[in-house]
């Protein structure tokens, strides 16, 4: 297989580069390889789109303006226990 063919058919490498690129700079060579691959591979184009969707949703889920606070609450009994432990320490 020549170099170009290797890139065209290597979805494993292409998807790794997609992940890498969402966090860091990839090399010029990698950038070219990825572009060539995506030109001919609609499956990886779909992967790229879905990967981005997942990233966005994760950020939304976990940093979404305190939504998680509404979802998770400590039971009052547990809070009382915590407070009394703190008070104990304070009064030592």
């Amino acid at each position: 297989m020549n170099e170009l063919k290797k890139i065209q058919y290597n979805c494993k490498k292409a998807t790794l580069l997609i992940e890498k690129k969402s966090f860091t700079k990839i090399t010029f060579r990698e950038e070219i390889e990825l572009r060539i691959h995506l030109l001919g591979c609609s499956v990886c184009v779909l992967y790229k789109k879905q990967s981005k969707l997942i990233n966005d949703r994760i950020l939304q889920l976990y940093n979404g303006g305190g939504n998680s606070e509404k979802e998770y609450h400590l039971p009052d009994t547990y809070k009382k226990q915590m407070q009394s432990k703190i008070d104990q320490e304070l009064n030592k």
Binding site: L61, E69, Q83, I86
Partner: peptide, 19 residues
């Protein structure tokens, strides 16, 4: 204000930990 930590921050910290 450690006396108020639980009422002021416990739920926030718990949510932070839970995710």
């Amino acid at each position: 204000k450690p006396q108020q930590w639980v009422s002021a921050h416990a739920d926030y910290l718990y949510a932070f930990a839970r995710v």
